[in-house]
Amino acid sequence: MGQSTFISNRANRVAAFAVAIGLSACQGGHLDPAAGITAAGITAAGATAAGATAKRHPVRYRPRPSGVGSGIATDLVDHNGAPIKAPCGSCHAGKAPSTRRRSGETLKIFHSGLRMKHGTLSCLTCHNGNNYDTLRLADDTEVQFDALMTLCGQCHGPQKRDYDHGSHGGMTGFWDLTKGPRVRNQCVHCHDPHAPAYVGMVPAAGPRDRFLQPARPGHGH
């Protein structure tokens, strides 16, 4: 196996094909923020012999991780031991928004551990200074936390496009939507919005074949 496989005829053909029909397949990811949870896929995945007219099951977002967009944890815990969260507005309503703040690291109370490592963004690039329980798009439109995919997609267009075409972001459920629904991860399931670079993980156990020698010297360990 060498590099040559890359520069293959197939790759050229595929590339030419891609130019030919190009993004004509891409009709834009229509996300309805008002609906909150909605179909994200724009491609008619799963059209089968059953016919494109068959009823489609929805593609839903997997619920956001509990830490995102649900207020801020207080010292109190509920009867299950989970921290009780206060809405953002309970503090921010009476405070003037800080337009220049880029990090929570210097804060004494609340957000004090918040490490911000997301380009040159400031808090108010995404958070809505007029109502901290919502977000804002680049054109100052107020949106709910449910619309965060749209928010991220403003800058991360290629990723959003790939996401909309099912080639970025984990999913479960059905490939054939005429047979059942699908649930999709949102950006924040893998990427911390304040420091989105993927942090890495410990891999699952490797193969334990008989007689498999340890990794090649200088590799793997």
Partner: peptide, 21 residues
Amino acid sequence: GNLLDPDSEIRWVLANKRVFV
């Protein structure tokens, strides 16, 4: 997905990404 479905995600990948086997 289904390679015979022109609207499937797999077909979108084949058409728009740099693909090799």
